[in-house]
Nucleic acid binder design. Structure first.
Lengths: 193, 193, 193, 193
DNA sequence: AATGAATGAGGGTTCATTCAT
DNA sequence: GATGAATGAACCCTCATTCAT
């Protein structure tokens, strides 16, 4: 049962670096020093590994959704929460980057992708609802929807910037820049107190 | 010389539909009813086709950049311009979607991608500079940079939405939705007149 | 000791449906909800299962051989006996169908196949000898040998027809058709009384 | 275009010796000293090779059907014709032996098999019709149908005997024995002249 | 008797690319 | 400009079998 997790861990790292398509099952098994058959004992095929990771991701997003109403009590908590969200997205960035697979992949994997996207949207919407509740924002219903859409896309877009940079040291810098943009997005709607 | 263009045209369509990696050179040659050798007479390799398309795209972006200061004279012209820009991005959407290739591709193709991204950023920046000049926006320098970044990401993000929908009829609808979000992004900074 | 029989029973069913080569040991163990190791505790390898079934079959044939001189007392008993024989062959039809394994299998399994074929031939020969004894046939020695050969091949050939039909309801029909042909084969040699 | 035929020739030999399933594409390409890709340039997959051979076989059977009414003018010509037919069947004996593939194969290959079987049945029926026409047989309609069925099964059954013998020298002997049985089958219905 | 993770050889197939004509 | 047969490396995956527990 150990090897299953080792495969997941390594696959996550390799998928993030190179993309699902460019990671071969042989590469995974060779680096882990296990037999190809062992990988296929734990997973039906390569997509099955991706599916498991997407589901892990999905659960983490859902967990974050249920936690954040406790963590964010004033507007000052918002940036810190965004950073932890962005950090999570960065951890599974191969998912957000690989639309090709999303479009053309097996229906099974496609469904998982779809579910994850909905989780992300839901989290985003809930976030703005909460901020509204805290009486931190002054914004109309329609505008809030647009804001939520834009917010998600900027978050994803900024995560994708990570993939263009090999140097891991710059990653935290980029994440902070992303957070800045997301904060700036809300700026105009802040309620003056 | 005819076949070169036919390859480019079909490749663009197929790349948009399926992604570079999922389009084989054999598929291209078969659909065009030409020989594989013929394709390789016109292009050094598959990436070479992609490169040519990226450059086409890049030039179209640059052309748009030089045109838009004539086309946009008041804020009312902005949405129409955005729509034509989005339409262009949609035409070459495989480029904006396929970060995998950008990350792992040959340095040659990578450079072309990079140049295109810079062109897009430049166009975006220039757009906001122009709007500022027209005295339509009231915005600080720093905020303007953030706005430009966000604007580009939302545009790209919305283009990627296209790829998740097979129905081509919905495409124009999605493009309009994208424009709405981009307009909404600027809304808070409009100068009241 | 229970599981050994369960493996044999399921294997027989699966071998008949799909052929030895297309049934994996994993399929057997999964359907029985036992571990692969358990299967290999009871059988040295997959062929060993087949061998056991062939031997079961062989014994059933031999038993039938010793019984039939009691069961067939007049020519009128012949069709009923043929039907019970055909039913037995149908039960183990994977054996009669799979000449590939016979040709290329391990010598051990090959020997079992060979022994079974001899049992079948012997049963057939004995059948005609008996009919002759009953004074039901008028046939020369040489013709009788040919008749026995032909009879066996038609029986096997008709059993193989079963495998081409998925619908189990038709099986009894096909068996009856086979019996008809076998009876027709003897028709010309009946003694007029 | 040469290699296509070489693949077909060698595959026929290997399929007859070892059965489709036990012949690997690598074995074929290695023995022919061509690349695996070359084989897949000429054939879509391994079954495609088998399909081509079955169709070859089918055509040969059909050709024989149209020829035999010229070749068989008296009953004395019958054995010679049977021998040439048996020789043809022997040439493609892997087809008649491999019911496993017939049962479980792709629908495409299955259809080809089915067509071939019909051709064989048609040839057989036509044969007996012709003999009847020549006024060589005295047989009733119903009996003739049974005779035709039995004849085909004996022919196939005897061809399968070939596969159990490695020594190629014995093959002609076995073929002759098969012919003898087939002739013996008709014996009882000969018209006395 | 039984488990189940692990092995590893082997097989079918794809595809970008070359090159003689 | 164009053809199309040929290459060969690479990949995904299967499955009979083993063995420590």
């Amino acid at each position: 049962m150990r090897n299953r997790e080792r495969v997941l861990n390594l696959s996550l790292a390799l998928f993030n670096q190179q993309g699902i398509a460019h990671v071969s099952t042989l590469q995974i098994t060779t680096e882990l020093e296990i037999s190809p058959g062992n990988l296929y004992y734990h997973f039906r095929n390569k997509e099955d590994i991706a599916k498991a990771l997407v589901q892990e991701f999905d659960q983490a997003v859902s967990r974050m959704r249920s936690e954040f109403s406790h963590q964010v009590n004033t507007l000052d908590d918002y940036p810190a929460f965004l950073l932890s969200l962005m950090t999570l997205l960065a951890q599974y960035r191969f998912v957000l980057r690989d639309l090709e697979t999303l479009v053309l992949g097996e229906p099974d994997l496609k469904r998982c992708f779809g579910h994850l996207y909905n989780s992300l949207k839901a989290l985003n919407q809930a976030m703005f609802d909460h901020l509204n509740h805290l009486d931190a924002l002054s914004i109309e219903k329609e505008d809030q929807r647009f804001l939520a859409d834009n917010s998600l896309m900027i978050a994803i877009g900024w995560i994708n910037q990570l993939s263009m940079v090999n140097n891991t040291d710059e990653h935290t810098l980029i994440l902070r820049q992303g957070v800045s943009r997301l904060v700036a997005l809300v700026q105009p709607y802040l309620k003056l107190t």
